[in-house]
Amino acid sequence: MEKLRIAIQKSGRLQEKTTALLRECGLAFTNGPNRLKADARNFPAELLYLRDDDIPQYVEDGVADIGIVGENVFIEKNKDIKIKEKLDFAKCRLSIAVPKSVEYSGTEYLNGKKIATSYPFIVNQFLEKNNVKAEIHEISGSVEIAPGIGLADAICDIVSTGSTLLGNGLKEVETVILSEAILVAHNDLSTAKQQILDKLIFRIKAVNTAKNNKYLLLNSPNHAIEAITNVLPGMRSPTVTPLKEEGWSSLHSVVNEDDFWDKIDQLKELGAQGILVIPIEKMIL
Rank of each mutant, 00 (worst) to 15 (best):
G234D: 04
V102P: 04
L183K: 01
I55G: 00
A192P: 08
I228N: 02
N219F: 14
S142Y: 14
E180M: 04
L27S: 02
H137G: 04
Y109C: 02
L151Y: 05
N78C: 09
M1D: 12
P33S: 07
L94V: 09
C25W: 01
L232V: 14
S190N: 10
Y58G: 00
L94M: 10
V255T: 07
L165P: 01
K171F: 02
I284S: 10
Q57Y: 14
C92L: 15
A206T: 06
E60W: 06
Q266E: 12
G141K: 08
E180D: 09
S253G: 07
L4C: 02
W248K: 10
E226I: 12
A116D: 02
L14Q: 04
L232G: 02
L232Q: 03
A181N: 05
K244Y: 09
K82T: 13
R51L: 13
E246K: 15
S253A: 09
D65S: 05
D258S: 14
T19S: 10
L94Y: 04
F260Q: 13
D54Q: 12
I264S: 02
N78M: 07
T241W: 08
P233V: 05
V255C: 05
Q9G: 05
A154I: 03
V255Y: 01
E71M: 12
E281Q: 12
G167N: 13
F74E: 01
N72A: 12
T107P: 09
V69I: 14
F121Y: 15
N187V: 13
I158R: 10
